[in-house]
C-alpha cells in the first residue's frame, strides 16, 4: 500500500476529511504504524478516531480483562464481555469500524516487551499509565526516537503530555499585514524558515509556508523542572487553572509513592510546592478541587475521554499526515469550566 495512490473507493469514503487535509495527508496516514497502549475510555476514543480516519496500521496492547466498572465508560464492550480479555472482546467491533485498517491485538504487558517490539512503530500513544510506567515508556521512546503521546484522566480533570523529541512542522497561512520572521516564538518553538507563494487565483493573496521547529522534553524532566516563570505575565500566572498543579502533583506522588493513597493535607502541601515551582500563586488551589482530585483520581469519564481522546487523535492524524503544527507539550482540561489551556514546559 505504501506510497500508492488512493483508490476511488477510498476517496469516496474519506471524502469529507480529504476536503480538509488533502490527498497527500490521507495517503501518508495510510502508511503509518501506530501503537496504542491500554484500551480504556480514552484509549477507545483514540482508537475510534484514528481507525475511522484510515490509518494504515494500529496495534492495540491491553493486558486487562473486562470488569463491570469498565461498562460505565467504554463503548467497545458490553455486559456479556465481563471477565473476557478486553482485546478479545473488542477485536471485531474495532475492525468493523473500518475494514481497511490493519489491526493487531496484543495481550502482553509493557514489562513483557523488549525494545525491538516498539521499534516497529512510527508513533506510540499511551493511556491509563501509572507515572512510573509513563516515565519508563518515555525513556524508551526517546532512545528509539519515536513520538509519544500520553493521556490520562482524573474524573472531570484530564491531561495530555506530548513528547515528539524534535519535530519540524510546516504550516501555511495567508500573509497578514505583518510578515512572519525567522526566530523563536515561544520557549519550545521557533520558526526556522519562511517561504511565500502567490495564490493561483487571486494574485493579491500571498501565502506563507512557515517551517517551525518544535522541541520537547521528557516527562521526567517536566516533572522535575516544569515552570511558567518568565513565560507568562503576572496576571496570566494568577489565572492559571488549579488543575495544572494538582495534575502534576498526582503524577509526581504516584511516581514517588507508588500506589499509596494521598491524604488531603499531603495533597495540599504538595500542590503548594508545585505552585512555587511553577511560579503560580498558591491562591489558585482551592479545597474543593483538591478534594475532588483525590476522590476522582485515575477515574475515566466518557465525556472527558471524548474530549482528550479527540484532541490526541487529531494531533496524531496531523503529524502522521504531515500537516499542521503539533501540540507542545502539556495540556490540562478542567471539566467543570471547560478550560483547556496548553503549557510549554
Amino acid at each position: 500500500m505504501n506510497g500508492e495512490k488512493l483508490s476511488e473507493d477510498e476517496i469516496a469514503l474519506y471524502d469529507r476529511q480529504i476536503r480538509l487535509w488533502g490527498l497527500a495527508a490521507q495517503a501518508n496516514m495510510r502508511s503509518a504504524k501506530v501503537l496504542l497502549i491500554n484500551l480504556g475510555a480514552v484509549g477507545s476514543e483514540i482508537t475510534k478516531s484514528i481507525v475511522l480516519s484510515g490509518i494504515g496500521h494500529l496495534t492495540i496492547m491491553d493486558g486487562h480483562k473486562v470488569t463491570e466498572e469498565d461498562l460505565g465508560s467504554q463503548f467497545f464492550i458490553g455486559s456479556e464481555d465481563i471477565g473476557q480479555w478486553k482485546i478479545d472482546a473488542t477485536k471485531e467491533r474495532i475492525q468493523d469500524l473500518n475494514p481497511r485498517v490493519e489491526l493487531n491485538f496484543d495481550k502482553q504487558t509493557l514489562r513483557e516487551k523488549d525494545e525491538g517490539f516498539f521499534q516497529q512503530f512510527d508513533l506510540i500513544v499511551a493511556t491509563e499509565m501509572k507515572a512510573d510506567e509513563a516515565i519508563k515508556i518515555n525513556t524508551l521512546t526517546r532512545r528509539l526516537n519515536i513520538p509519544l503521546y500520553i493521556a490520562g484522566s482524573n474524573g472531570l480533570f484530564a491531561y495530555i503530555f506530548i513528547d515528539l523529541i524534535e519535530f519540524i512542522s510546516e504550516d501555511e497561512k495567508l500573509q497578514s499585514m505583518r510578515p512572519t520572521f525567522v526566530g523563536p516564538i515561544s520557549s519550545n518553538r521557533s520558526i526556522i524558515e519562511v517561504n511565500t507563494r502567490k495564490d493561483e487565483e487571486d494574485a493579491k493573496k500571498t501565502f506563507e509556508r512557515i517551517k517551525i521547529k518544535n522541541s520537547y522534553k521528557s516527562l521526567e524532566e517536566v516533572l522535575s523542572t516544569a515552570t511558567l516563570k518568565e513565560k507568562m505575565t503576572r496576571r496570566q500566572l494568577k489565572r492559571v487553572t488549579s488543575v495544572l498543579p494538582l495534575t502534576l502533583c498526582l503524577l509526581q506522588h504516584e511516581f514517588n509513592q507508588k500506589g499509596e493513597e494521598i491524604s488531603f493535607e499531603q495533597m495540599k502541601r504538595d500542590a503548594f510546592v508545585w505552585c512555587e515551582q511553577l511560579g503560580v500563586p498558591k491562591t489558585v488551589i482551592n479545597d474543593e478541587y483538591t478534594q475532588q482530585f483525590i476522590k476522582q483520581k485515575g477515574i475515566e469519564f466518557a465525556p472527558v475521554a471524548a474530549i482528550i481522546g479527540g484532541a490526541v487523535a487529531q494531533d496524531v492524524i496531523n503529524i502522521l499526515g504531515k500537516r499542521l503544527s503539533p501540540l507542545n507539550n502539556f495540556i490540562v482540561l478542567d471539566g467543570i469550566t471547560l478550560d483547556m489551556p496548553l503549557f510549554e514546559f
Binding site: 469529507r16 478516531s49 471524548a306
Partner: peptide, 10 residues
C-alpha cells in the same frame, strides 16, 4: 463542508 470524527467527538 468538511467533517471529521475528532472535532465531533470533542
Amino acid at each position: 463542508i468538511p467533517a471529521i470524527a475528532t472535532t465531533n467527538a470533542i
